[in-house]
């Protein structure tokens, strides 16, 4: 009877009165960075800090505007985005694939996981020169370096998420007579989705990190190259523009994944703070 249960559905609507506070929350989050920038600008203007090492925010903004106007920034950024995207797609895709495989079968765990764990422990910077030797200074070495980084977070998180699926629900799937395929598609994957999406977020971050390493080491284009080139000519503002670009684009990518996660995992009943 519905009278046993009306309360819970009604409480869904009662929570939605926090809308006007959104602006206040943003202001709260922005207060510290804005203050920092103001102090920085003031100190730079008075000559208290070296404008060579710490160009003032206004100088950086100026450099950024001219880089945007000349199309230089966008040209480098586009190349970087393609590299990061391809590397993330390749590495993350394979990581997800092998994570699912190893998660679903104990036999493949025993054969594959030890090797993967070994490769995981080799640092980026250690293999970067080798990658350049093997695959040349072209795009391949960079994309593969990014892929190597992006592989592991997705691999490990997909693997662990599958192993963490509630055994009680497996029992239900047996009682309901799920086929092997349905058990994976309708039980394992949805149950592992929170972990997989966390893996996507971490992989994306690592791909971005790998991009910087790849472009700083050996490159003739990309935001990383723009930075290392500027450093050689002591154009510190351009270095800061590069850092800012990496931060903003990285944050944007992360926000997109977070938004997708929130939509896909709306059924979760977790602590919301």
């Amino acid at each position: 009877m519905s009278d046993l249960s009306g309360g819970k559905a009604a409480s869904r609507n009662a929570v939605r009165n926090g809308e006007p506070r959104k602006a206040a929350i943003i202001a709260l989050g922005a207060a510290l960075p804005v203050l920092l920038l103001a102090v920085w600008q003031a100190l730079g203007d008075r000559g208290a800090i070296s404008t060579m090492l710490f160009p003032t925010p206004l100088t950086i903004a100026d450099a950024m505007l001219s880089l945007i106007r000349s199309g230089e920034l966008w040209g480098h950024l586009r190349i970087s985005l393609v590299r990061a995207g391809l590397g993330f797609g390749l590495g993350g895709g394979l990581g997800l694939l092998f994570g699912l495989l190893v998660g679903l079968s104990r036999k493949s765990e025993k054969t594959l996981d030890p090797s993967f764990q070994m490769i995981r422990m080799v640092p980026h910077l250690a293999v970067a020169p080798l990658f350049v030797l093997w695959f040349g200074i072209g795009e391949e070495s960079k994309i593969l370096l990014i892929a190597k980084g992006a592989f592991f977070p997705l691999y490990i998180n997909a693997f662990l998420a599958i192993r963490g699926v509630d055994n009680k629900l497996f029992e239900v799937s047996r009682v309901l007579g799920f086929s092997r395929f349905k058990r994976v598609a309708r039980l394992v994957l949805p149950a592992a989705l929170p972990g997989i999406l966390l893996g996507v977020r971490l992989s994306l971050g690592v791909a971005w990190l790998g991009l910087v390493v790849a472009e700083l080491i050996a490159s003739t284009s990309g935001v990383g190259y723009m930075m290392s080139d500027a450093r050689q000519f002591a154009q510190t503002p351009v270095v800061f523009v590069g850092i800012l670009t990496f931060a903003v684009v990285g944050l944007a990518a992360d926000s997109i994944v977070r938004l997708v996660s929130r939509k896909a995992l709306h059924w979760q009943d977790g602590f919301k703070g």
Partner: peptide, 26 residues
């Protein structure tokens, strides 16, 4: 198998599915 229905002590529903989809399941 499906010829032997089983109700556990806890409902054990799939948390990501709505009521009607939980009933349909596979």
């Amino acid at each position: 198998g499906i010829d032997k229905g089983f109700i556990f002590q806890e409902p054990r529903l799939f948390p990501w599915l709505s009521v009607e989809k939980n009933i349909a399941a596979d």
